[in-house]
Design a protein around this nucleic acid. Structure first.
Length: 330
DNA sequence: TAGGCCATCTGGTCCT
DNA sequence: AGGACCAGATGGCCTA
């Protein structure tokens, strides 16, 4: 990944300076810390370049140390009292810089690991596409809902094909994401699913979330992930990771309070709210809009379709807009 | 142009 | 001392 110039480092140091953090007195606290702080001045790209300009201010201050202080009106100010500030050797600055560069690299690596984990999480969500990634926050919300919904299936025998299941999945999600999830669950073996077949490598460590598809899950009778073959091994890859559910049940407008988000209220449905924003995943239509290379993040609003088209593709034949109340309502 | 999302840098804190 | 983790700041990219 390319590194970017850290353009505001100078601004920060200015701010810090204006706050007096770079005052001479700082040197009496800890030489390394103060030099570390001053070392931010002039940091450019990743701290890899610009090492020569690093801490140039610091050196200038060192020189000022030996000069007479001049007041705002040109008058001579008394020489600063107190212990003479130690000159921080360049070697130390270099050490600090190297430490910072290494820390940056570690931090990048750490964040990449975090993003990889998030990607793995995306792959086991009910709607996954390599080319249309859910945002981080939406991924986490959907994962939470997914766990919650699957737990409900296990505990209460609620059918994963019920509207309630999808409602649980969509609670708290943005409307575009809700629409995406709803679309995925209803479309079954859609182009998106085919896309996943191609996109997904064998990936078995999170099989619990595939249970609806992989194991032909029908309800509580399914082996709990904590037992049997699902407990420790990695079952062979068995098709798309997303459970290709088809919502065959009648939509109801019943709103249940969320046990995991009590503060959120889902009010009475707005007529035609479901898919009302016309947001529609292009991959569900069999392809992505061209161009826009380099930005894989899911931008649902880019894939707008007229509401009628969306319904034609999403909704079961028996479903009418008036029945599709507040899948998502906020 | 505003807003959302992201990657990166950074300093602070805690732990080993 | 150094690494992991965290949160704030910042700028880039993209879309509406």
């Amino acid at each position: 990944m390319m590194t970017k110039p850290f353009g505001k480092a100078g601004d920060v140091s200015e701010l810090v300076s204006s706050l007096g953090w770079l005052d001479d007195d700082v040197s009496s606290v800890d030489g390394e810390d103060s030099s570390d702080m001053r070392g931010r001045c002039g940091l450019t790209t990743d701290g890899l370049e610009g090492s020569t300009e690093l801490c140039s201010d610091d050196m200038e201050e060192d020189e000022e140390d030996d000069q007479e202080m001049i007041g705002p009106n040109g008058e001579e100010l008394p020489k600063r009292r107190g212990p003479k500030r130690k000159k921080v050797p360049k070697v130390r600055h270099e050490r600090v810089r190297v430490r910072r560069v290494k820390a940056n690299a570690r931090e990048r690596s750490r964040m990449h690991g975090l993003n990889d984990a998030l990607d793995n999480l995306r792959r086991v969500m009910p709607c996954y596409s390599k080319t249309q990634k859910l945002s981080k926050i939406e991924t986490l919300r959907l994962a939470r809902n997914y766990i919650w919904a699957l737990s409900e299936v296990l505990d209460s025998g609620r059918s994963p094909e019920s509207l309630g299941f999808m409602e649980m999945l969509c609670k708290g999600l943005s409307q575009p994401t809700s629409n995406l999830v709803a679309g995925c669950l209803q479309l079954g073996a859609t182009p998106m699913m085919l896309n996943q077949m191609e996109d997904n490598p064998p990936y078995g460590s999170l099989e619990a979330s595939h249970l609806l598809h992989v194991k032909g899950f029908k309800g509580p009778s399914y082996d709990h992930p904590s037992s049997g073959e699902c407990s420790g091994g990695s079952p062979p890859y068995d098709g798309p990771l997303t459970p290709p559910l088809s919502i065959s049940g009648q939509f109801s407008l019943k709103q249940e309070p969320s046990p995991i988000e009590g503060e959120r209220t889902y009010t009475a449905p707005h007529a035609g709210h479901y898919l009302s924003s016309h947001h529609y995943p292009a991959s569900a239509m069999g392809g992505l809009p061209g161009g826009q290379a380099g930005h894989a993040l899911f931008r649902p609003s880019r894939y707008e379709l007229p509401l009628e088209m969306a319904f034609d593709s999403f909704a079961p034949s028996h479903m009418v807009p008036s029945q599709m109340g507040a899948i998502y309502s906020e």
